[in-house]
Design a protein around this nucleic acid. Structure first.
Lengths: 246, 246
DNA sequence: GAGTGGTCTAGACCACATT
DNA sequence: ATGTGGTCTAGACCACTCC
């Protein structure tokens, strides 16, 4: 019963040392090599044995504390949290989520065009009201089931959108390929009844509850690059979060 | 137009230096002294001028990056993000949320008793199925409007619950006063139709959409201390999140 | 008192973006 | 070439918990 997994470091790798350590601890936790509730060795010993400085070792542990996998307590030690470790909400699109889950997502582009921004969109994207923006509407399926109806708006000039790319790769992957990196996003999660149009698209009845999410995403430079309104079928989708006291 | 706010350090204070710096930057950002999009001075200069080491200065900036208020870009600099800075989902109860928002929350205890844990509760709290746990049901109001119906379950022996405390202070404050600190929580947000009982309590119609949240909270020691199922009226409540690419 | 995590220093070298 | 953030070292002292 080890207070640590077997850890190998590659000092010639471009991957930061703290990240290599964190990765191997994470794997050991997820695989059960270190069980929930187990205490891991103290920072000083770990650093010494791995030939690292203590700040570097601390940084490795901190990344897992931030993920909610480890809990530190001063004067006591560091241990693996109890309970299932679920994936938390991350800065990815639903498309990524589903792909990673091994399911088969499919996207149908309902339209892709330029149109004048409504008041809310203009404010979120920091453009003038009525200014032209990309307007994208998509319907996402898992298998044959419609899962989500997604309306997204992007400033013109930032990127050239292509229907084929979007069907195949999802919006965020398309942005990444254009060199746009999302760094911060703000989301609001709520719920409401489906409109007739939404119900038709999603194969629900009019007035059925839908889980809704509004998101504004910002790039490297702090500029808004995307605003979206999404509606999910609540039987098929929910949001998982891990919150950590800092 | 400063690349930094006026910062004063108190080295005799028990408050960490990096936190003092972060606090004053945050205030400058929220008050508009540093505008969205403004670049702040580089880490090295800031550290030198404040008489801090660079790692300490970095730690200060990092806490604001984690909050989604600053964006760092290698080779370029650090700037304030655009857009409104909303409060993100934090490790607090709804009661805290409402109090801070200056509204007047009121809580009605529907029941507080010991009862056998159902399957899901037992699993989340890591007790045997059918074992006795605290069972707490509350109805929360803002003004005269019912806002949320909350069912919570806690292991027995951890804390003695008192109805008066709960009405007045909320569950999390009561736990804090008992020396229990929540460190990690896992939440699942979804939505569904109200049952007849829920609709009656919340002043909605049967079948109305409700925003739901399940949460399991863990303490210092990684032990589950609380499992709850909450239902919110979607016209009155939503979840705001800020996601940051790490 | 012993052991643990929390904070802090004063540097160093590297990777990346811009000019 | 210059300036920026990203990583890392080898220590130091303190605060807290537990025995």
């Amino acid at each position: 019963m080890p207070g640590r997994p077997a850890i190998t470091l590659d000092r010639s790798s471009p991957i930061p040392l703290y990240f290599q350590v964190a990765e191997q601890f994470e794997e050991a936790i997820l695989s059960g090599t270190i069980a929930p509730g187990d205490r891991i060795d103290n920072e000083v010993d770990l650093a010494r044995d791995l030939g690292l400085s203590r700040p570097t070792m601390r940084q490795a542990i901190q990344t897992l504390v931030d993920k909610g996998m480890l809990v530190r307590k001063r004067g006591v030690g560091t241990q693996v949290v109890h309970g299932k470790v679920r994936r938390s909400v991350e800065l990815t699109s639903l498309y990524d989520d589903l792909t990673r889950a091994g399911q088969e997502p499919r996207t149908e582009i309902l339209h892709l065009r330029r149109s004048p921004a409504d008041e809310e969109t203009a404010q979120e994207l920091q453009v003038a009201e009525g200014a032209e923006v990309w307007s994208l509407e998509r319907l996402r399926f898992v298998g044959d089931e419609p899962l989500a109806l997604m309306c997204n708006y992007l400033p013109i000039g930032l990127v050239d959108l292509d229907g084929a790319d979007l069907e195949h790769d999802g919006l965020y992957a398309t942005l990444r390929r254009s060199g746009i990196l999302i760094r911060v996003a703000r989301q609001r999660i709520g719920c409401r009844r489906a409109t007739t149009a939404e119900a038709t698209r999603l194969g629900e009845r009019r007035g059925s509850p839908l889980l809704t999410m509004q998101r504004t995403a910002y790039d490297d430079a702090g500029q808004a690059v995307e605003f979206g309104r999404h509606a999910y079928r609540p039987e098929l989708y929910s949001f998982d979060l891990t919150l950590v006291e800092r």
